[in-house]
Design a protein around this nucleic acid. Structure first.
Length: 329
DNA sequence: AAGTAAGGCAACCGCCGAATA
DNA sequence: CTATTCGGCGGTTGCCTTACT
């Protein structure tokens, strides 16, 4: 037995929204909110639309403080960094970019940013970008190749104004993050990012209540909210056993081969002593851990191409995905 | 100026997980 | 415990625009 449709498909309008529909939806939500029920909303608002369609229209277009238009270099970096670490989790990425929606970012990535990163000249007869074309490597880059240099190497029309130091993801963490004794602090510290010199500077790691990780910026966008909030954080309880399982992999292997990246996390007050962060453990570049993953250009390209076929096999196998999900939410 | 192809983006589709009856 | 409903998400589609021949 299939699931009942969310709306009567025969009687709902599809396609582009008219200005009248927009203003009707906007007015209604501004007056009454969503009522926590998108399915019932279109009827109340007098719209012949599916509730999901209303939700999408509101979140992606109508809600206040939506930013449209070009993405900044900083936004590019954040998107690339997060994509490298978590894959196509657009809602999470959007949470780091105030005013941007997951749909926007997804479109931007698929149409532009991916090509930038791949160093692809758009296969169009349109005008090429006003940057010299740099031939792709025919031999693997030296081990020190970083993603920031990759930008320069491979993206003829990507210019980076801010250099990346690799310090920020640690320094962005509040002091007590590393010192708290009552909190199981869990920081996502993708060694990939660190070793590639790309960083999550706008990210902040919040140590919160036991076993809870908050992953988000303080001005996160609201792409996944009901539209009534101004901020959103992603927090989810993480089972201790899950953490232990993950940790054991880290301890024994440094990183999981299948995942090709790792999480480091401080775990004060427990008997897990290896790979524990403390303020004195910090390496000069802010990266703790001895697993220096070196990704050359080809590997990043592989990431992009593998992620584009529907699964991030480069980073996540199917089994790890559930676990990974728990860590990131 | 007309035709064509590719890009860009809004919107839809279908799946998943959480909440609830 | 199971079935159902709903919100949310990522992938995909299709239309409109733009650039080029």
């Amino acid at each position: 037995m299939g699931r009942a449709p969310c709306c009567d498909k025969a009687n709902v309008k599809k396609g582009p929204w008219s200005p009248e529909e927009d203003s009707r939806l906007k007015d209604f939500i501004e007056k009454y909110g969503t009522g926590g029920n998108w399915i019932a909303l279109p009827q109340k608002a007098g719209l012949k639309r599916c509730g999901k369609s209303c939700r999408l229209r509101w979140l992606n277009y109508l809600r206040p403080n939506i930013k449209h238009g070009d993405f900044s270099d900083d936004e590019d970096k954040i998107i690339c960094s997060l994509f490298a670490s978590i894959g196509s989790r657009w809602s999470i990425i959007a949470a780091q970019l105030p005013g941007r929606t997951d749909n926007d970012i997804k479109n931007y990535w698929n149409t532009k940013l991916k090509k930038k990163l791949m160093g692809m000249i758009p296969s169009t007869h349109r005008k090429p970008p006003p940057f010299p074309t740099i031939p792709l490597r025919t031999t693997p880059p030296p081990p020190s190749s970083s993603l920031s240099s990759l930008y320069n190497d491979c993206s003829p029309y990507y210019t980076s104004t801010n250099s990346l130091t690799g310090l920020e993801s640690i320094s962005a963490a509040p002091h007590n993050f590393l010192n708290t004794s009552t909190t199981t602090s869990l920081a996502i510290n993708c060694s990939l990012l660190q070793t590639q010199d790309i960083l999550l500077s706008p990210l902040q790691y919040y140590p919160v209540k036991d076993s809870l990780i908050m992953f988000g910026g303080d001005q996160a966008s609201c792409s996944s909210s009901d539209g009534s909030c101004s901020q959103i954080s992603y927090g989810k309880e993480i089972k201790q056993e899950d953490m232990g399982l993950h940790q054991s992999h880290m301890i024994s292997n440094g990183f999981e081969e299948n995942q090709r990246f790792m999480f480091d996390y401080g775990h004060n007050g427990s008997d897990h002593s290896l790979n524990t962060w403390s303020s004195t453990d910090l390496k000069p570049n802010g990266y703790l851990g001895n697993t220096a993953l070196e990704y050359d250009l080809e590997e990043v390209k592989q990431l992009i191409s593998s992620s584009s076929n529907g699964c991030n096999s480069f980073f996540f196998n199917d089994e790890s995905k559930t676990q990974e999900r728990a860590l990131y939410y």
